[in-house]
């Protein structure tokens, strides 16, 4: 199963953290720090795999760099490394389509939506969708539902909204 999906930038700042087995906050921080330390010491154009013992001896880590971001997936022996690389491609493609030319800022400012997208692809550590068009369909549906406040209708209350 997939144990975690993490996105951090090249400064080590986390942009997306999703653990599929519960980890206390301190442990999460430690894991991310360790991963960042390993990743930033790796040269460019090397393989995308890192032997990882974060969750025990059989876990593996695959990462991919896109512009300023590291996409990281941690998983165990019931996943295939190359298939996970494909999966990351699907995830990034979907982000790309949802935010048209995704960049780090999109992920920074769309915390909720990025989670929505991820949840359509992986549930409980299991991959439930590999087609990015299906994911986008579901995400669009959800956005429509979100925008239709069937209880209270109000002006959006934000400072920026008033400006």
């Amino acid at each position: 199963m997939i144990r975690a999906v993490i996105v951090i930038n090249d400064q080590g700042k986390p942009r997306l953290i999703k653990f599929y087995d519960y980890q206390p906050v301190e442990k999460q921080q430690e894991i991310i720090r360790n991963i960042y330390a390993v990743l930033c010491s790796r040269a460019e154009n090397v393989s995308n795999f890192v032997q990882d013992s974060t969750f025990g001896p059989d876990t593996r880590l695959v990462y991919k760099t896109f512009a300023t971001l590291y996409f990281i997936v941690i998983f165990d022996e019931s996943e295939n490394e190359l298939a996970i690389l494909d999966l990351m491609q699907v995830f990034v493609e979907t982000l790309d389509k949802c935010f048209s030319n995704v960049c780090e800022l999109d992920i920074v400012f769309n915390f909720n939506k990025v989670h929505t997208i991820l949840d359509e692809i992986i549930l409980g550590g299991q991959v439930v969708e590999m087609s990015s068009s299906e994911v986008i369909k579901a995400v669009d549906d959800i956005s429509r539902l979100e925008k239709n406040p069937n209880s209270i209708v109000r002006v959006q209350k934000s400072i920026s909204g008033w400006q």
């Binding site: 920074v108 400012f109 915390f111 909720n112 959006q156 209350k157 934000s158 400072i159 920026s160 909204g161």
Partner: peptide, 16 residues
Amino acid sequence: DSLFQRTLDDLIKGIR
């Protein structure tokens, strides 16, 4: 407070 509540976007901008 309710009227001028910061949104998540405002929070993120503030942090940045």
